[in-house]
Nucleic acid binder design. Structure first.
Lengths: 375, 375
DNA sequence: ACACTAAGTACAGTAGGTGAACTATTCAAG
DNA sequence: CTTGAATAGTTCACCTACTGTACTTAGTGT
């Protein structure tokens, strides 16, 4: 069994890639003696291994890193139909994946999952005895305990205790999480925000999601609603939104909205690139549309920066690259709407979402809880 | 000397008013045995005392509470000229206060403070041996270490290591903090947010300030800029702001801006109440102005709620009451701009600022660090 | 070959907790 | 008024997880 200190060390290794014991001593504030014993135990448990030795003067130091095969987690993405069920190792590599129908009846879905998981384990038998948890990512509001879906418009759920149902069917520690928050977790654990304590992820897709890491933990908010920028008001007299309000960011800048607006104006577009192409060819409507959308997203991100002052903002996107007019306008709008003395100090990064990101993020929910010692 | 556990218990007592040992056991997760010994030590140290005993069936329980005379802190408010220097006890009562010129030369100010502090202590001699720290509240950006003022427009400062200077002159642990954050601290330690882990304070005064408590700690942000909603863009094509941007909340809804806008339009107003009175008498301009300001502030607060989903938002004000047209519009605007499924779930409270609040908040900076064990 | 440097380990000692049995102080029933 | 049940708080032996110090290990520089 792992103690809180074991977990602390695991998190430090996870955050700082391969590290020496001496570096871990500095980071955690533990003594060399304690570190020696605790790392040995982690190595014996198969969670950590020495990858390399680097030498300067004196005895060379051994680099410690997570051992991928040390623990496995199952990630379920309910963002698509069919849902994706993936088996990920401790470093977030997806070693097996299956799909299953996204039954919106929670009981049946949990039952189905109970049948799919064994199939997944057959594909990687070694994972069976190191399986440590299961995470489910879905769109909607999730409670603090990561147990109940308070509300999901997409799935038509209200107060569904999905984690309990899945736990009963699969028999593993189960945690559920909002999609944007799962994505942030994935970036924190495996991606470009590994060594950051405070950052924000904005996911640009059919909808717009957003999640914050604050002091090394996901910030859920009092009702699981932290990060719901998709429905912050950008145009006080704008278009009605399916949420019931008016002028939400979602009605202007989501990929879905942009495409709908484009097609309304006679620009044939199936992806954002199509609108960009039209703009490059001189379509005034396309240019105006991209400006409007970019300004909206930029303003919303500027608000996040002003309110939370993160170390970094990561914009994730589906298109091959975050470039072109839209990206330029977004960045410009952020710059223009952030306090001059703060602007430019907050790096804005962008990253294409790979196909596996959601499933990896879902597995990351379980990984995160494992590293926090919740099991 | 206090251990981390002592401090944890002190914080729990501070947050939950008079509490029984048994309740503390439940809150902290410590054993009865540990609690027994640790509370005795806190009582012996004079930091805690038994106030009352309440009985049901069984042995009556003793209520533990902070002992005001157990520790004293000095709070310096640089928000006014002259600056206010106050001596506060562990419960935030101000037991002595003096004023001193607000010299904007940091060295000289620290020197002056070095002379004022002994005078303050003469007024309450008992405080001398229990003095535990000094906090300075000022408007501007403060670094994470609460040591350096990164920038203050009001004082004309840039990268001023004020805490070091004051520490040298006064010889006490010194922390500096932004005014809005000090106010939030004051509410957390002594006010209406004692038992909350996540809340936001919005201070409406000549300027507009804002600060967040997240997971029981002040959220400063990567550059000390968390909460700077005064300069979030509300009207993309609005008035120029002294910050260099355009359409900032500050140019519409701060008391200063409202009064300036009113007088520009021929409404003679020295306080917000004067504008309210004009509105009551049917002045279309006054009504429009209050609507505009209220909508702006409401939208900004709605953004905070959507982004951080706090347990509560506290609006502090200078006027005798937060009522009238402006308050109504603010509340309505919050309601209108927050996701319907979240709105109404976030209590909006308001509170009049007393005269001592800033000095108490400044002292609270030191109290907070004392309770965190930083000294 | 030798000193020097830095990484990592062994081991006794210790601080800060736990669990179980105890005492203290009340209410309620007979 | 006694007795028992209920709850609060204390005592004490024990244990765990850490620290400090002295050591070993494994390289570099001369």
């Amino acid at each position: 069994m792992l103690t809180a200190t074991h977990n602390q060390i695991l998190r430090a290794i996870g955050a700082s890639g391969p590290v020496t014991r001496t570096e871990l001593v500095a980071r955690t504030g533990l003594s060399k003696a304690a570190m020696s014993g605790l790392t040995r135990e982690l190595i014996e448990a198969g969670l950590v291994h020495e990858t390399d030795t680097v030498g300067g003067q004196g005895r060379p130091s051994a680099m410690l890193d997570m051992r991928p095969e040390g623990a496995y987690f199952i990630g379920v993405s309910m963002l698509t139909d069919p849902a994706i069920v993936a088996l990920a190792d401790l470093k977030g590599n997806i070693v097996a994946r299956l799909t299953m129908p996204r039954d919106t009846d929670p009981e049946r879905f949990a039952q189905d999952l109970g049948k799919v998981v064994p199939k997944l384990l057959e594909m990687v038998p070694a994972a069976r005895e190191h399986l440590n948890g299961i995470g489910v990512a879905l769109s909607g509001l999730i409670d603090q305990a990561q147990e109940t879906c308070i509300e999901s418009t997409l799935l038509g759920w209200k107060d569904v205790p999905l984690a309990r149902l899945v736990h009963k069917a699969v028999g593993l520690p189960t945690y559920i999480e909002n999609d944007a928050k799962a994505l942030a977790l994935s970036e924190k654990l495996f991606g470009s925000a590994r060594d950051m304590q405070n950052f924000t992820v904005v996911s640009l897709g059919d909808g717009i999601g957003c999640a914050h890491f604050i002091r090394d933990q996901l910030h859920r908010g009092a009702h699981g609603g932290a990060g719901e920028i998709a429905h912050s008001t950008i145009e006080p007299n704008g278009l009605p939104c399916r949420c019931g309000k008016v002028g939400c960011l979602d009605t202007i800048a989501s990929v879905y909205a942009q495409l709908a607006l484009a097609n309304d104006q006679g620009i044939e577009a199936k992806t954002l690139s199509d609108i960009e192409t039209a703009a490059t060819r001189g379509s005034a409507q396309a240019i105006a549309l991209l400006h409007r959308a970019g300004n909206a997203l930029g303003l919303a991100i500027a608000n996040v920066i002003q309110i939370n002052d993160p170390e970094m903002v990561l914009i994730t996107h589906q298109e091959p690259a975050f470039s072109g007019l839209f990206a330029t306008v977004v960045k410009q709008a952020i710059e223009n709407n952030v306090l001059p003395r703060l602007s430019g100090r907050t790096p804005i990064r962008s990253q294409k979402l790979s196909d596996d990101v959601w499933a990896r993020g879902a597995a990351g929910i379980a990984t995160h809880n494992f590293l926090l010692g919740f099991n």
